[in-house]
Simulated scan of single mutants.
Amino acid sequence: MEDMINTIDSDLWQAVSASPFNAIDYEYLLATDPSKIREEEMELSLKSPLPEIPQPIDVTNIDLPSSDKHRIRVRTYRPKGGKNLPVLLYFHGGAFIYGTPEQYDFLFFSLVQDLPLLVVSVDYRLAPENPFPAGWKDGCDVLRWLSENADDLGGNRNNIMIGGSSAGATIAASVTHWARDQKNLKIRHQYLLYPPMSHILDSPSMNELKNAPLQTRKAAEWMWKHYLQSYIADPPKYAVPLSENNFKDLPDATIIICELDPLKDEGIRYAEKLKEAGVAVNVLKIKGAVHAFDFFPCPLSDTFYRQQVALFKQIVHKNNEENNSH
């Protein structure tokens, strides 16, 4: 463990060590009382002042209809007055069990000021109360709704990207496979940050980095157990991205992996599957980074934010060129 800590970017490790969220014993609670993580995160969040919404942007919470009679909350971010904007459909992280769209305010407040973009962040149903397919189904429902109604929010329904971080990236990838199979739903790009892609947990990095800060093998085991539950021995279609059989005709992908994240080899394997199927993939490896590093304020996170802006500018430019050529 000490050798690993010496490899972590020193400013990042200082920020991680100073985080009040260290008071939450995530691994213990994942095993014993996973929903309590939400309570403890909320208590900590309430002790911090809420970031003010920047004047140039609109932030709105909307309830959308679902295919199984409940309402799905989405949190939208866009530059004021923006029309015909590229859409980023986003899924927050949190091991399929915790996390909220609001935890990403810091990112999207900045991103929609630096880019002409409409972000639609999904407050999907969480395990263990709502295991697969609930959260994934919410994602499919929101995508279908956006493909018909994004223009009403200032977006372009023909220019939808999908993204997510950690477990949210898993859901984003699963929704992307489903959308490809629907034939009438087009996703232009998939943007996946440090994604868990397999419940089998057999990669070299999962073994070598099994006790890494912020993501351990034990936590990954519990995450998949709570998400898949009775399906753990034989996951159904769309539950586990690396268990899919067909990677053809999927949208171009950007995959972010972290040097000291046990999940990194799963992201690399997924990229290889896409490349073998003829899909264009950009894999960006962040040196000295641990899982979810970008939540900790430090120069490494600042540099990565600038990289993200540049990446999204490239993706949007490419999508616009493709749109104009059709």
Rank of each mutant, 00 (worst) to 15 (best):
T7E: 11
L12H: 06
E2C: 00
N84R: 12
L46G: 00
T216Q: 12
H326Q: 12
G154I: 01
F91H: 10
Y191L: 15
L44S: 13
L64K: 04
D123Q: 07
D249M: 02
F106R: 07
P20A: 13
C258H: 07
Q215P: 00
I200K: 15
G164I: 07
F296W: 14
L46W: 06
F21S: 12
T216K: 12
L300E: 01
R71W: 01
G163H: 05
N323S: 08
Q182H: 13
L300S: 04
L193D: 00
W222V: 00
E259K: 10
A220M: 15
I5K: 15
T32E: 14
V142I: 04
V122C: 10
G82N: 08
R78H: 05
V120E: 07
M223L: 08
I315Q: 01
Y26V: 14
L64N: 05
L153A: 00
V309Q: 10
H317N: 13
P297L: 06
K318D: 14
I268S: 10
L50S: 15
V16L: 11
L300P: 04
E321C: 09
D265A: 03
F296R: 13
G155T: 10
E41W: 04
R269P: 00
N319W: 02
P241Q: 09
S17V: 04
I200D: 15
Y98F: 15
P236H: 09
S230Y: 12
A253L: 08
N84K: 13
Y90L: 02
S147G: 06
V175F: 00
F296P: 09
G135Q: 02
S301D: 00
K287L: 13
L201N: 07
Q308L: 12
D9Q: 08
L214R: 08
G288W: 05
Y26G: 00
D265W: 01
A169T: 03
E221N: 08
L260I: 12
P34L: 07
L146Q: 07
L242Y: 13
A310T: 13
I162D: 09
T100C: 03
L85W: 01
I72E: 09
L250F: 05
A219L: 14
L30Q: 13
T170F: 05
P128K: 02
A280K: 08
I37H: 11
K183F: 03
F132A: 01
I5W: 03
V120F: 07
Q103R: 11
D105F: 05
